[in-house]
Write a protein that binds this DNA or RNA. Structure first.
Lengths: 227, 227
DNA sequence: GATAGTATTTACCAATCGGTAAAAGTATAG
DNA sequence: CTATACTTTTACCGATTGGTAAATACTATC
């Protein structure tokens, strides 16, 4: 008779034993494949709208495996948001590298390039934030939203720690906050913006439009802050 | 035996016959109560995440009445978005009244006040746009998204027709588009922003923050456009 | 009061949801 | 080979989804 576990066991023990049973899939391990599939699905649908069956199908596994490895939809979502938060916090400092020795507008341009480089390669982060944004602060409290708030706050505090942010404090804060919110919309709802603009959401033209638009809006404010 | 209709009949005939059967509810008519309840529910949940049962409960009716009056969830959503689009298009010109004879920054300030006055009283419009934004342009095509796109486009073209929008055309377009996207986030996801800011989403402090923030970001750009 | 047309309620349907129990498969340790 | 632990699959549960059929309630007209 199978043992009835509560929660789930930690299959990460056992050293190196699960890494050969997959077809031609680059042997990732079931847990990792579920996590990656969940990241993709949660990037397209809010926590409520996403279903464990969709994630299982995306990962090519049977849906009970999700509960075997993660226990619940909530905990899977938490694992996804936690990883994204951690990875983003690791990469963020690189975006600021050498910016302080440049002139403000050039620094902003380079920052936007680095920022867009990363998020066009890892769109899920901004997408997950965007599709769940309307639910944050609402009555229904979902574990994992915590990491979304920390993500927003992390980006904000990093940008505010950005070398020189002089001028009136309130305007500097508006600069940082609005930059993030705008970028989150352009990257998290890119298919909508691209459709409105008549562009391919994954094409170079859209990327260039995002950069030009952010520069056009924030350059005057930046120059005012430094005047 | 009851007649099996396909679709649904048009209960709007019969002149004046349904307006007395409700308790103390201000006698609205069932159809109108469903439409208003649907507007509230669709403002909090995306089209997919909202359910006809939630709407029926919100309206205080049995859920088959939704299909009796509107035929399907899609058509109900379409009715909601169509009305919001129509009402917004009607009110928009008033936001621009007398703005052209003012100095740009003062005009922007007054415009923001009128804009926020309306959307703090009618938050559903921006909320519905926001919670469905990520799905627009995606594969799944939902009737009613059309009105959302028309809403965005209408606001954009109205603002661009705003008396003088001089300067480089691209920057003027960035101004208008980003203003709308930012405002949509501040109003459509106000509970999230308010939580991040530690404010009450329906309080005067948050409204003031929105105005100050929009002014801080767009005043320098506006002045540059007019220089 | 009978009739006809509208409005509402009751009872259902198949599909899908998150989640669970238990059997079946698979590998390793002794 | 056997015992054991881990992994995967099968089969289910109750709840909810959008939607429908049919019965009932209501109201105005004749």
């Amino acid at each position: 008779m199978a043992v009835a576990r509560k929660g789930h066991s930690k299959p990460a023990a056992m050293g190196e034993s699960r890494r050969r049973q997959r077809k031609g899939d680059g042997d990732e391990g079931t847990r990792e494949r579920i996590l990656k599939a969940a990241t993709r699905v949660f990037a397209q649908h809010s926590f409520r709208a996403a279903s464990t069956r969709m994630i299982a199908a995306e990962a090519g596994v049977d849906h009970p495996l999700i509960h075997y490895y993660f226990g619940s939809k909530e905990k899977l979502f938490e694992a996804v948001t936690e990883r994204i938060y951690r990875e983003t916090m690791e990469i963020m400092p690189a975006w600021l590298h050498d910016l302080s020795r440049m002139r403000p507008v050039e620094g902003l341009s380079l920052f936007i390039d680095r920022f867009l480089d990363y998020y066009f390669d890892h769109p899920e982060a901004q997408q997950i934030i965007f599709v769940n944004m309307a639910q944050i602060g609402q009555l229904e409290e979902i574990p994992g939203y915590r990491y979304i708030l920390m993500h927003i706050e992390g980006l904000r505090s990093m940008l505010e720690g950005m070398a020189p942010l002089p001028g009136r404090r309130e305007e500097a804060e508006s600069f940082v906050y609005c930059f993030h919110i705008l970028a989150d919309s352009f990257l998290g709802a890119k298919s909508a913006h691209a459709q409105i603009l008549g562009m391919d959401p994954d094409g170079e033209a859209y990327r260039q439009w995002v950069k030009d638009t952010l520069l056009a809006v924030f350059t005057p404010l930046l120059e005012e802050l430094f005047s």
